[in-house]
């Protein structure tokens, strides 16, 4: 079972081996090689979204679209029903015999509420599965890791990985041609 950063506990990264790369393409190649070598508790860290990195980890995040769709439908239904109940049932005002529950007029507020719910649902779902906000993390103990937000690309293998061996994994990472290798303090 493939597990990455967001599905793992933060503590699992204590003692992880971290290889640093200077170029995004080198990182993607390294990720693929690590997968082929059978490592499954790995993640990569980049300053911006890197094409091919998510694919190398087999990440499929399409489900977020369905969360947003669910929020949209729930918000739209709730918004429409609210207007229908308030203007059509609870407080009907007859203006010149016009329909009390005039659906075309209700669509605009219903749409706005639907968008609001969809956006809230998508962001809340993202933060929940990302386990964010989380201000401390073992990886932040590495001095070089601050460069992840600037121009460095990191590949990390957690010690909880079934294939992890202190020496073997370090040798494997060295074979990928990184700029340097560090170990997260325990």
């Amino acid at each position: 079972m493939m597990r990455t950063e967001a599905t793992m506990k933060a503590e699992e990264w204590q003692g992880a081996l971290v290889a640093e790369f200077a170029e995004p393409d080198a990182l993607v190649t390294a990720l693929r090689r690590a997968r082929e070598a059978g490592y499954s508790r790995i993640d990569a860290f980049t300053p911006f979204p890197v094409e091919g990195a998510a694919e190398a980890l087999d990440l499929r995040e399409g489900w977020l679209v369905w969360v947003a769709t669910g929020g949209f439908l729930a918000g739209g239904a709730l918004g429409y029903l609210m207007q229908w109940y308030l203007n059509g049932v609870n407080y009907p005002i007859n203006v010149g015999g016009r329909p009390l529950a005039a659906w075309p007029a209700f669509t605009l507020p219903a749409f706005e509420i639907a968008v609001l719910f969809a956006v809230f649902a998508a962001i809340a779902a993202m933060l929940y599965v990302d386990r964010l906000p989380r201000l401390n993390h073992p990886l932040f103990e590495l001095e070089r890791f601050g460069l992840v937000s600037r121009d460095r690309f990191f590949l990390a293998i957690a010690p909880t990985d079934p294939r992890f061996e202190a020496e073997g994994t370090r040798a494997f990472l060295a074979g990928l041609g990184p700029a340097r290798i560090d170990q997260v303090p325990r």
Binding site: D43, F45, P49, D130, L139, V148
Partner: peptide, 14 residues
């Protein structure tokens, strides 16, 4: 606590 994880980026982008 953003740390640029590829997993986070993939979801962020979506």
């Amino acid at each position: 606590g953003w740390r640029g994880s590829v997993t986070h980026w993939a979801r962020w982008r979506r």
